[in-house]
Design a binder for these strands. Structure first.
Length: 192
DNA sequence: TTTACGATCTAT
DNA sequence: TAGATCGTAAAT
């Protein structure tokens, strides 16, 4: 049994948190059973100045969770059909979060396969909305605490990805965002 | 009240 | 390369 990452893990910049989250294990436990996967891709979103961040609109009903304490889930609905999961980072009052973009399947393979059918294994968890579909994550988990097992969603310590194995790029899906935000290398991922 | 569009995914 | 599909935020 691994340890659940504590609030202090998230109480730093989203970029540092995103790097540290690579290799950690996202766990979902519910009526259907336990599903988990190793985080292999994430993106940092930081502050009202970051024009790719939802907090660019300021504190609203949607973004209020990002202004809250670190270690909570910020889950938003987009494109009329998809949910995406973030971990809130930084001190309370500072809007920042890490988008969980891809996992390597670890536990609950049968359940993942059923929910992601008929896609091949390589396409099961390689996108933020795919993760939420496979792990049954949606709006009712918004603002839940990822540092306790209470709501059935948390992140456990596992083997960190060495710095040398971390790759970076611009964030995905923000084509209409002005520079420098469009190109800033706040996406981190690993191929190992 | 209306409009435009989005931190996406899938099939074509 | 386009269609699905609707909440959010800004414009009217």
């Amino acid at each position: 049994m691994s340890e659940i990452l504590p609030p202090s893990f998230y109480n730093r910049s989203p970029l540092k948190t995103a790097r540290a989250l690579l290799g950690m294990r996202l766990v979902r436990e519910g009526d259907s059973g336990r599903i988990s996967g190793r985080i292999i891709e994430a993106e940092a979103y930081q502050g009202e100045e970051d024009l790719a961040c939802h907090a660019r609109a300021g504190r609203t009903a949607r973004t209020v969770v990002m202004y809250g304490p670190p270690g909570r889930a910020y889950i938003y609905f987009t494109y009329g059909m998809h949910w995406c999961l973030n971990a809130v980072t930084g001190a309370e009052g500072e809007p920042a979060a890490v988008l969980i973009r891809a996992l390597q399947p670890m536990e609950g393979i049968d359940l993942i396969a059923a929910r992601r059918a008929p896609q091949p294994r390589a396409l099961w968890l390689n996108g933020p909305a795919k993760i939420c579909q496979a792990l049954d994550i949606n709006g009712h988990l918004n603002a839940c605490d990822l540092t306790t097992p209470d709501c059935g969603l948390w992140i456990e310590a596992d083997k960190p990805v060495p710095e040398l194995e971390i790759q970076t790029s611009a964030r995905i899906g923000i084509q209409n965002v002005p520079e420098p935000w469009r190109s800033i290398p706040w996406r981190v991922f690993t191929s190992s």
